[in-house]
Amino acid sequence: MFLRVLKAKLHLATVTRTDVNYHGSITIDEDLMDAVGLLPFEQVLIGNCNNGARGETYVLRGPRGSGAIELNGAMAHLAAPGHRIIIMSFAFMKPKKARHAKPQVAILNEANRIIEQFAGEPENPVDPV
């Protein structure tokens, strides 16, 4: 048996652009991808904090240091620029390994800069907004 466990999360990312006429995906600043271990073409779940919408797509690399969080294709209907979203990736693990899993988490400010980063659970789980 395998369990689907959180692997990586970008929390409160700000959507910088949407493009409904592009192939479906989410473009993410490569520095942010590296911070939590996201890979190009990895499947992600996106939750919109503004309207509760959720959707799944895959990751494309955005320019390093750009702060880019761009929803493309059908995903562009999920949010508007300025909306705050949560980007999550999951991995399948056996229960024994899953008990000790520590997802890589980065909490972002409105400019998509990391304001807090940790593995596993936060020491003081307080919403920074």
Results as ranks from 00 to 15, higher is better:
2 F>Q: 10
3 L>C: 03
3 L>V: 10
5 V>D: 03
6 L>C: 08
6 L>D: 12
7 K>F: 01
7 K>W: 00
8 A>D: 09
9 K>V: 09
9 K>F: 00
9 K>I: 00
10 L>R: 11
10 L>S: 01
13 A>E: 04
14 T>N: 00
14 T>F: 02
15 V>F: 01
17 R>Q: 10
17 R>E: 10
17 R>K: 14
18 T>M: 10
20 V>E: 14
21 N>T: 12
21 N>Y: 12
21 N>R: 15
22 Y>N: 04
24 G>R: 02
24 G>Y: 08
24 G>L: 02
24 G>E: 15
24 G>P: 15
25 S>Q: 11
26 I>Q: 05
27 T>L: 01
27 T>V: 13
28 I>W: 05
29 D>C: 03
29 D>N: 11
29 D>S: 10
30 E>T: 13
31 D>Q: 15
31 D>R: 15
32 L>W: 05
32 L>V: 13
32 L>N: 12
33 M>K: 02
33 M>Q: 11
34 D>Y: 08
36 V>K: 00
36 V>D: 01
36 V>M: 00
37 G>M: 02
38 L>D: 09
38 L>K: 00
38 L>M: 10
39 L>T: 12
40 P>G: 10
41 F>I: 08
43 Q>G: 03
45 L>N: 12
45 L>Q: 08
45 L>K: 05
47 G>L: 01
48 N>G: 13
48 N>R: 14
51 N>T: 15
51 N>S: 07
52 G>Q: 05
53 A>Q: 03
54 R>E: 07
54 R>V: 02
56 E>W: 07
56 E>S: 13
57 T>F: 03
60 L>I: 14
60 L>R: 04
60 L>K: 10
61 R>Q: 07
62 G>F: 09
66 S>I: 03
66 S>M: 15
68 A>K: 01
68 A>I: 11
68 A>D: 04
69 I>L: 06
73 G>V: 07
74 A>V: 14
74 A>T: 14
76 A>D: 15
77 H>G: 11
77 H>M: 12
77 H>W: 09
79 A>V: 05
81 P>Y: 05
83 H>K: 11
85 I>E: 14
87 I>V: 09
87 I>H: 11
88 M>N: 15
88 M>E: 04
88 M>F: 12
89 S>P: 12
89 S>G: 07
92 F>E: 14
93 M>N: 04
94 K>I: 09
95 P>G: 10
97 K>Q: 13
98 A>G: 06
98 A>E: 13
99 R>D: 02
101 A>W: 04
101 A>P: 00
102 K>E: 12
106 A>K: 09
107 I>L: 09
108 L>C: 05
108 L>R: 08
109 N>E: 02
112 N>C: 01
112 N>V: 12
112 N>K: 10
113 R>C: 03
113 R>N: 12
113 R>H: 15
114 I>S: 09
115 I>A: 05
116 E>H: 13
116 E>P: 13
116 E>Q: 15
116 E>W: 05
117 Q>A: 13
117 Q>N: 04
118 F>L: 05
120 G>T: 09
121 E>I: 08
121 E>L: 05
121 E>Y: 07
122 P>Q: 02
122 P>G: 04
123 E>W: 07
123 E>K: 04
124 N>T: 04
124 N>L: 07
125 P>Q: 00
125 P>L: 06
126 V>P: 02
127 D>V: 05
128 P>A: 11
